[in-house]
Protein backbone atom coordinates (compact mmCIF):
# COMPACT_ATOMS: atom_id res chain seq x y z
CA UNK A 1 0.00 0.00 0.00
CA UNK A 2 2.04 2.88 -1.33
CA UNK A 3 -0.26 5.53 0.15
CA UNK A 4 0.59 4.53 3.71
CA UNK A 5 3.13 6.82 5.40
CA UNK A 6 6.82 6.07 4.91
CA UNK A 7 8.45 6.60 8.31
CA UNK A 8 12.10 6.47 9.33
CA UNK A 9 13.08 5.66 12.92
CA UNK A 10 16.33 6.41 14.74
CA UNK A 11 17.31 4.58 17.94
CA UNK A 12 20.39 5.44 20.05
CA UNK A 13 19.20 5.07 23.65
CA UNK A 14 21.82 2.48 24.66
CA UNK A 15 24.55 0.66 22.76
CA UNK A 16 22.80 -0.02 19.44
CA UNK A 17 22.66 2.52 16.63
CA UNK A 18 19.50 1.54 14.79
CA UNK A 19 17.80 3.06 11.76
CA UNK A 20 14.62 1.47 10.47
CA UNK A 21 12.21 2.34 7.70
CA UNK A 22 8.59 1.17 7.59
CA UNK A 23 5.62 1.80 5.35
CA UNK A 24 2.45 1.35 7.40
CA UNK A 25 2.94 -2.00 9.12
CA UNK A 26 5.53 -3.19 6.61
CA UNK A 27 9.20 -3.30 7.53
CA UNK A 28 11.40 -2.10 4.67
CA UNK A 29 14.78 -1.72 6.37
CA UNK A 30 16.32 -2.33 9.77
CA UNK A 31 19.97 -1.27 9.77
CA UNK A 32 21.92 -1.75 12.96
CA UNK A 33 25.42 -0.96 14.23
CA UNK A 34 26.24 -2.31 17.65
CA UNK A 35 29.00 -1.17 19.97
CA UNK A 36 28.46 -4.23 22.20
CA UNK A 37 31.96 -5.55 21.45
CA UNK A 38 33.49 -2.31 22.70
CA UNK A 39 31.63 -2.67 26.00
CA UNK A 40 32.37 -6.37 26.50
CA UNK A 41 35.79 -5.71 28.05
CA UNK A 42 34.17 -3.37 30.58
CA UNK A 43 31.53 -5.94 31.54
CA UNK A 44 28.69 -3.51 30.88
CA UNK A 45 27.62 -0.62 28.69
CA UNK A 46 29.88 2.42 29.13
CA UNK A 47 27.87 5.57 28.29
CA UNK A 48 30.77 7.58 26.87
CA UNK A 49 31.88 4.69 24.67
CA UNK A 50 28.30 4.25 23.44
CA UNK A 51 27.96 7.95 22.58
CA UNK A 52 31.19 7.92 20.58
CA UNK A 53 30.08 4.84 18.69
CA UNK A 54 26.69 6.37 17.83
CA UNK A 55 28.35 9.45 16.34
CA UNK A 56 30.56 7.28 14.15
CA UNK A 57 27.81 4.90 13.12
CA UNK A 58 24.90 7.18 12.34
CA UNK A 59 25.77 8.26 8.78
CA UNK A 60 26.78 4.81 7.45
CA UNK A 61 23.82 3.16 9.19
CA UNK A 62 21.46 5.70 7.63
CA UNK A 63 22.94 5.00 4.22
CA UNK A 64 22.43 1.26 4.66
CA UNK A 65 18.83 1.72 5.75
CA UNK A 66 18.02 3.95 2.77
CA UNK A 67 19.76 1.57 0.37
CA UNK A 68 17.99 -1.48 1.83
CA UNK A 69 14.58 0.21 1.59
CA UNK A 70 15.45 1.62 -1.85
CA UNK A 71 14.23 5.08 -0.89
CA UNK A 72 15.83 8.49 -0.37
CA UNK A 73 15.37 10.90 2.52
CA UNK A 74 13.21 13.01 0.22
CA UNK A 75 10.72 10.12 -0.02
CA UNK A 76 10.30 9.88 3.78
CA UNK A 77 7.09 11.30 5.27
CA UNK A 78 8.27 11.61 8.87
CA UNK A 79 11.30 10.96 11.08
CA UNK A 80 10.78 9.36 14.49
CA UNK A 81 13.56 9.25 17.06
CA UNK A 82 13.87 7.78 20.54
CA UNK A 83 14.01 10.85 22.79
CA UNK A 84 13.87 8.84 26.05
CA UNK A 85 14.27 7.03 28.34
CA UNK A 86 17.89 5.89 28.04
CA UNK A 87 21.48 7.07 28.42
CA UNK A 88 21.42 10.88 28.22
CA UNK A 89 24.49 11.34 26.04
CA UNK A 90 23.56 8.49 23.74
CA UNK A 91 19.99 9.75 23.27
CA UNK A 92 21.31 13.21 22.48
CA UNK A 93 23.30 11.94 19.49
CA UNK A 94 20.23 10.33 17.94
CA UNK A 95 17.96 13.30 18.64
CA UNK A 96 20.48 15.79 17.20
CA UNK A 97 20.98 13.58 14.15
CA UNK A 98 17.23 13.31 13.61
CA UNK A 99 16.97 17.09 13.76
CA UNK A 100 19.77 17.47 11.21
CA UNK A 101 17.98 15.12 8.82
CA UNK A 102 14.57 16.69 9.49
CA UNK A 103 15.91 20.23 9.00
CA UNK A 104 17.77 19.46 5.82
CA UNK A 105 15.04 17.33 4.25
CA UNK A 106 12.18 19.46 5.64
CA UNK A 107 10.37 16.58 7.38
CA UNK A 108 8.33 16.46 10.59
CA UNK A 109 10.08 14.92 13.58
CA UNK A 110 8.53 12.77 16.33
CA UNK A 111 10.34 12.31 19.64
CA UNK A 112 9.08 8.96 20.91
CA UNK A 113 9.25 6.80 24.02
CA UNK A 114 11.66 3.87 23.72
CA UNK A 115 9.44 1.53 25.74
CA UNK A 116 6.33 2.27 23.70
CA UNK A 117 8.44 1.59 20.61
CA UNK A 118 9.30 -1.86 22.00
CA UNK A 119 5.55 -2.56 22.06
CA UNK A 120 4.87 -1.03 18.64
CA UNK A 121 7.46 -3.17 16.86
CA UNK A 122 5.23 -6.21 17.25
CA UNK A 123 2.82 -4.70 14.71
CA UNK A 124 5.48 -5.22 12.03
CA UNK A 125 5.32 -8.95 12.65
CA UNK A 126 1.78 -9.65 13.82
CA UNK A 127 -0.24 -6.74 12.45
CA UNK A 128 -2.37 -4.26 14.39
CA UNK A 129 -2.27 -4.72 18.15
CA UNK A 130 -5.56 -5.60 19.85
CA UNK A 131 -6.16 -3.00 22.53
CA UNK A 132 -6.17 -3.09 25.45
CA UNK A 133 -3.11 -5.34 25.73
CA UNK A 134 -0.54 -5.99 28.42
CA UNK A 135 3.09 -5.52 27.46
CA UNK A 136 6.06 -6.93 29.33
CA UNK A 137 9.35 -5.25 28.41
CA UNK A 138 12.43 -6.99 29.70
CA UNK A 139 15.98 -6.00 28.78
CA UNK A 140 19.27 -4.87 30.22
CA UNK A 141 17.84 -1.44 30.85
CA UNK A 142 14.20 -2.05 31.74
CA UNK A 143 11.76 -4.53 33.25
CA UNK A 144 8.22 -3.22 33.04
CA UNK A 145 4.64 -4.36 32.85
CA UNK A 146 2.39 -1.95 30.99
CA UNK A 147 -1.29 -1.69 30.20
CA UNK A 148 -1.65 -0.51 26.62
CA UNK A 149 -5.04 1.13 26.04
CA UNK A 150 -4.02 3.18 23.03
CA UNK A 151 -0.43 2.90 21.86
CA UNK A 152 -0.43 6.34 20.23
CA UNK A 153 -1.93 8.13 23.17
CA UNK A 154 -0.93 6.65 26.48
CA UNK A 155 0.45 3.65 28.26
CA UNK A 156 -0.25 2.88 31.92
CA UNK A 157 2.63 1.49 33.95
CA UNK A 158 1.52 -1.50 36.06
CA UNK A 159 4.86 -2.39 37.57
CA UNK A 160 8.61 -2.29 37.10
CA UNK A 161 11.78 -3.57 38.65
CA UNK A 162 12.66 -2.00 41.98
CA UNK A 163 16.37 -2.77 41.58
CA UNK A 164 18.17 -4.53 38.72
CA UNK A 165 16.63 -4.96 35.28
CA UNK A 166 16.09 -8.56 34.17
CA UNK A 167 18.80 -8.33 31.52
CA UNK A 168 21.15 -6.76 34.04
CA UNK A 169 20.66 -9.81 36.28
CA UNK A 170 21.61 -12.03 33.33
CA UNK A 171 24.73 -9.90 32.72
CA UNK A 172 25.81 -9.93 36.35
CA UNK A 173 25.27 -13.65 36.81
CA UNK A 174 27.09 -14.38 33.55
CA UNK A 175 30.03 -12.32 34.77
CA UNK A 176 29.95 -14.11 38.11
CA UNK A 177 30.09 -17.44 36.29
CA UNK A 178 32.82 -16.19 33.96
CA UNK A 179 30.60 -16.66 30.92
CA UNK A 180 31.18 -13.22 29.34
CA UNK A 181 29.05 -10.31 28.21
CA UNK A 182 26.25 -9.90 27.25
CA UNK A 183 24.85 -12.46 29.63
CA UNK A 184 21.44 -13.26 28.12
CA UNK A 185 22.48 -15.39 25.13
CA UNK A 186 25.30 -17.26 26.96
CA UNK A 187 23.13 -18.16 29.93
CA UNK A 188 20.32 -19.29 27.62
CA UNK A 189 22.81 -21.52 25.80
CA UNK A 190 24.54 -22.83 28.92
CA UNK A 191 21.19 -23.53 30.63
CA UNK A 192 20.13 -25.91 27.87
CA UNK A 193 22.45 -28.57 29.35
CA UNK A 194 21.35 -27.95 32.93
CA UNK A 195 18.53 -28.89 35.28
CA UNK A 196 16.28 -25.87 36.05
CA UNK A 197 15.08 -27.50 39.29
CA UNK A 198 18.49 -28.44 40.68
CA UNK A 199 18.90 -25.28 42.80
CA UNK A 200 16.00 -23.48 44.45
CA UNK A 201 16.87 -19.81 43.89
CA UNK A 202 14.50 -17.19 45.35
CA UNK A 203 11.59 -15.62 43.43
CA UNK A 204 11.70 -11.88 44.23
CA UNK A 205 8.54 -10.06 45.35
CA UNK A 206 6.31 -13.12 45.24
CA UNK A 207 5.74 -13.63 48.96
CA UNK A 208 2.23 -12.56 50.13
CA UNK A 209 3.58 -9.59 52.13
CA UNK A 210 5.52 -8.34 49.08
CA UNK A 211 2.60 -8.86 46.72
CA UNK A 212 0.50 -6.39 48.71
CA UNK A 213 2.82 -3.49 47.86
CA UNK A 214 4.54 -4.81 44.73
CA UNK A 215 2.00 -6.92 42.94
CA UNK A 216 3.39 -6.26 39.45
CA UNK A 217 6.88 -5.12 40.41
CA UNK A 218 10.06 -7.15 40.02
CA UNK A 219 13.25 -7.53 42.03
CA UNK A 220 16.30 -9.38 40.76
CA UNK A 221 18.96 -8.09 43.11
CA UNK A 222 18.28 -10.73 45.77
CA UNK A 223 18.38 -13.49 43.15
CA UNK A 224 21.76 -12.29 41.88
CA UNK A 225 23.07 -12.24 45.45
CA UNK A 226 21.72 -15.75 46.10
CA UNK A 227 23.52 -17.05 43.01
CA UNK A 228 26.74 -15.34 44.10
CA UNK A 229 26.50 -16.82 47.62
CA UNK A 230 25.76 -20.28 46.24
CA UNK A 231 28.74 -20.15 43.85
CA UNK A 232 31.11 -18.76 46.46
CA UNK A 233 30.12 -21.44 48.97
CA UNK A 234 30.81 -24.05 46.33
CA UNK A 235 34.22 -22.57 45.55
CA UNK A 236 35.05 -22.31 49.26
CA UNK A 237 34.40 -26.00 49.61
CA UNK A 238 36.73 -26.63 46.69
CA UNK A 239 33.96 -28.09 44.59
CA UNK A 240 33.45 -27.39 40.88
CA UNK A 241 30.64 -25.00 39.97
CA UNK A 242 28.04 -26.74 37.78
CA UNK A 243 27.66 -23.89 35.28
CA UNK A 244 24.77 -25.48 33.37
CA UNK A 245 22.69 -26.20 36.49
CA UNK A 246 23.33 -22.77 37.99
CA UNK A 247 22.44 -21.09 34.67
CA UNK A 248 19.29 -23.16 34.23
CA UNK A 249 18.09 -22.65 37.81
CA UNK A 250 18.80 -18.91 37.70
CA UNK A 251 17.05 -18.55 34.35
CA UNK A 252 14.07 -20.53 35.62
CA UNK A 253 13.72 -18.23 38.64
CA UNK A 254 13.71 -15.13 36.40
CA UNK A 255 11.29 -16.56 33.85
CA UNK A 256 8.98 -17.97 36.53
CA UNK A 257 8.48 -14.57 38.17
CA UNK A 258 8.23 -12.66 34.89
CA UNK A 259 5.61 -14.89 33.34
CA UNK A 260 3.58 -15.37 36.53
CA UNK A 261 3.24 -11.62 37.01
CA UNK A 262 2.58 -10.95 33.32
CA UNK A 263 -0.26 -13.48 33.18
CA UNK A 264 -1.67 -12.14 36.43
CA UNK A 265 -1.58 -8.61 34.97
CA UNK A 266 -3.58 -9.81 31.94
CA UNK A 267 -6.17 -11.58 34.08
CA UNK A 268 -6.57 -8.69 36.51
CA UNK A 269 -7.17 -6.25 33.65
CA UNK A 270 -9.35 -8.57 31.59
CA UNK A 271 -6.82 -8.51 28.76
CA UNK A 272 -6.35 -11.40 26.32
CA UNK A 273 -3.17 -10.23 24.53
CA UNK A 274 0.31 -10.24 26.04
CA UNK A 275 3.16 -8.65 24.07
CA UNK A 276 6.70 -9.40 25.21
CA UNK A 277 9.58 -7.20 24.06
CA UNK A 278 13.13 -6.22 24.97
CA UNK A 279 16.32 -8.24 24.69
CA UNK A 280 15.29 -10.79 27.33
CA UNK A 281 12.23 -11.65 25.20
CA UNK A 282 14.72 -13.50 23.01
CA UNK A 283 15.27 -15.94 25.90
CA UNK A 284 14.02 -19.34 24.77
CA UNK A 285 12.75 -20.43 28.19
CA UNK A 286 10.79 -17.20 28.70
CA UNK A 287 8.91 -17.73 25.45
CA UNK A 288 8.04 -21.35 26.22
CA UNK A 289 6.94 -20.68 29.78
CA UNK A 290 4.88 -17.63 28.81
CA UNK A 291 3.04 -19.57 26.10
CA UNK A 292 2.41 -22.55 28.40
CA UNK A 293 0.92 -20.39 31.12
CA UNK A 294 -1.00 -18.06 28.79
CA UNK A 295 -2.65 -20.98 26.99
CA UNK A 296 -4.30 -22.08 30.24
CA UNK A 297 -6.10 -18.74 30.44
CA UNK A 298 -6.88 -18.20 26.76
CA UNK A 299 -4.32 -15.43 26.46
CA UNK A 300 -2.48 -14.88 23.18
CA UNK A 301 1.26 -14.25 23.52
CA UNK A 302 2.89 -12.11 20.86
CA UNK A 303 6.69 -12.07 20.78
CA UNK A 304 8.43 -10.47 17.80
CA UNK A 305 11.40 -12.27 16.29
CA UNK A 306 14.61 -11.83 18.35
CA UNK A 307 16.15 -9.18 16.08
CA UNK A 308 13.10 -6.98 16.67
CA UNK A 309 13.07 -7.63 20.44
CA UNK A 310 16.45 -6.08 21.06
CA UNK A 311 16.90 -2.34 20.50
CA UNK A 312 16.59 -1.38 16.84
CA UNK A 313 15.46 1.43 14.57
CA UNK A 314 12.48 -0.46 13.15
CA UNK A 315 10.65 -0.26 16.47
CA UNK A 316 10.97 3.51 16.50
CA UNK A 317 9.78 3.71 12.90
CA UNK A 318 6.88 1.36 13.76
CA UNK A 319 5.71 3.65 16.56
CA UNK A 320 6.24 6.71 14.34
CA UNK A 321 4.09 5.07 11.69
CA UNK A 322 1.26 4.57 14.23
CA UNK A 323 1.56 8.21 15.35
CA UNK A 324 1.42 9.54 11.79
CA UNK A 325 -1.55 7.29 10.99
CA UNK A 326 -3.36 8.51 14.11
CA UNK A 327 -2.80 12.14 13.14
CA UNK A 328 -0.70 12.94 16.20
CA UNK A 329 1.09 16.30 15.99
CA UNK A 330 4.87 16.12 15.51
CA UNK A 331 7.43 17.43 18.02
CA UNK A 332 9.24 20.74 17.66
CA UNK A 333 12.88 21.28 16.71
CA UNK A 334 13.76 22.13 20.32
CA UNK A 335 12.79 18.58 21.31
CA UNK A 336 14.97 17.60 24.29
CA UNK A 337 16.51 14.21 24.99
CA UNK A 338 14.88 13.04 28.22
CA UNK A 339 16.77 10.21 29.91
CA UNK A 340 13.92 9.77 32.43
CA UNK A 341 11.00 10.13 30.01
CA UNK A 342 7.89 8.80 31.77
CA UNK A 343 5.89 5.94 30.27
CA UNK A 344 2.83 8.13 30.11
CA UNK A 345 4.56 10.15 27.37
CA UNK A 346 4.39 8.12 24.15
CA UNK A 347 5.50 11.01 21.95
CA UNK A 348 6.62 14.53 22.80
CA UNK A 349 3.86 16.98 21.94
CA UNK A 350 4.67 19.81 19.54
Amino acid sequence: MADEPLVLGIETSCDETGIGIVRGHTLLADALASSVDQHARFGGVVPEVASRAHLEAIVPTMQRALDDAKVTLADIDAIAVTSGPGLAGALLVGVAAAKGYALAADKPIYGVNHLAAHVAVDTLEHGPLPEPAVAMLVSGGHSSLLLVDDLTNGVTPLGATIDDAAGEAFDKVARLLGLGFPGGPVIDRTAKEGNPRSIAFPRGLTAPKDLAAHRFDFSFSGLKTAVARWVEARERDGEPVPLADVSASFQEAVCDVLTAKAIEACRTNGVSTLVIGGGVAANSRLRVLAEERAAKHGIEVRVPRPSLCTDNGAMVAALGSRLVAAGVAPSRLDLPADSAMPLTTVSVAG
Binding site: V59, A96, Y101
Partner: peptide, 10 residues
Protein backbone atom coordinates in the same frame (compact mmCIF):
# COMPACT_ATOMS: atom_id res chain seq x y z
CA UNK B 1 28.71 15.74 19.51
CA UNK B 2 25.41 17.61 19.03
CA UNK B 3 27.00 20.01 16.55
CA UNK B 4 28.94 17.31 14.74
CA UNK B 5 26.08 14.86 14.30
CA UNK B 6 23.73 17.66 13.22
CA UNK B 7 26.26 18.78 10.62
CA UNK B 8 26.86 15.21 9.46
CA UNK B 9 23.14 14.50 9.15
CA UNK B 10 22.48 17.69 7.22
Amino acid sequence: RVGLVTAAGM
